[in-house]
Nucleic acid binder design. Sequence first.
DNA 1: TTGCAAAGTTAGGTGCGGCTAACTATATTA
DNA 2: TAATATAGTTAGCCGCACCTAACTTTGCAA
Lengths: 158, 158
Amino acid sequence: MGKAKRIELSASLEDYIEAIFNLVHESKVARSKEIAQRLNVSRSSVTGALRLLKDKGLANYEPYGYVTLTDTGRLAAAEIVKKHNILKSFFEKVLGVESSLAQDAACRAEHALGTEIIARLLAYIRFVSANNKNGYHLADEFRRFCENPPPEPAGPRN
Amino acid sequence: MGKAKRIELSASLEDYIEAIFNLVHESKVARSKEIAQRLNVSRSSVTGALRLLKDKGLANYEPYGYVTLTDTGRLAAAEIVKKHNILKSFFEKVLGVESSLAQDAACRAEHALGTEIIARLLAYIRFVSANNKNGYHLADEFRRFCENPPPEPAGPRN
DNA sequence: TTGCAAAGTTAGGTGCGGCTAACTATATTA
DNA sequence: TAATATAGTTAGCCGCACCTAACTTTGCAA
């Protein structure tokens, strides 16, 4: 109970549903053309994807109409967005990666990592920021470590 | 100089090249059937992939013959394997994820993350194990944090 | 050596995810 | 309201990555 049945989504359909979710949160409604622009695909590809999402019960879509997500779709989208945000935060705040690269990597990795790993990453972000509050700044510590790493344990090039 | 031109490989071909690399390191030579077993694909799919890898100059392949990698192929494979190992280590040693899940996640994520992020992850692993040598055990610290996390900053469910 | 099982290939098919070009519907505006 | 620009769809195509079934090659045992 409380556990809705998971719908298997391809990486591509995850991208579409995520784009729709974001567009709806920006302008109440998603238009086909905007989705195409976000994802850098043709308008006709969007039409095809929308039909699939409708078939799976994830998107409210009628030809020539605006697009929104169903409750199930919103749930699925929220999960993907959550993964995305956690990954981006992790890359930025923990690893100190530059923002746009973090964004980019998050986009690609969000389809590959399951909930367990994502949960751990979130925990790690919290762990690091908790550590930031006392005198010991873990993130800074790592930055310093990167700038001046201890010598390698010898051996040939790796 | 020193910088060989990168060959773009699909996730699927990366899997094949990685499997061949590992098989060669286990038994000097890779056979089509073994590759198929490792990757859970049919023998005919392997034939197709081998032709592609040969075309790209990555595998030494003649019909009905054994399979090895070219120098370029070995280089490409080594990079993928490196990504795999770093990811697996990170999931296990830093995040404390169970070994087989770490292995699994590494398989999927290795195709999605670029060298910059991978390098940072490696640095982070080193950072954590360096921290393990003094009295302060970062990995243990995180484990404890996971078992007994501080209360959330209030607010509605997230 | 023949003769058969196992390994490998070929032929042909599927689904996905993308594309362009041409068409249709909708919106705008003169 | 009629003309046109823009948005969306359809038709038809391509490449990738897989599959099964049937065929060929190879290697091993009788």
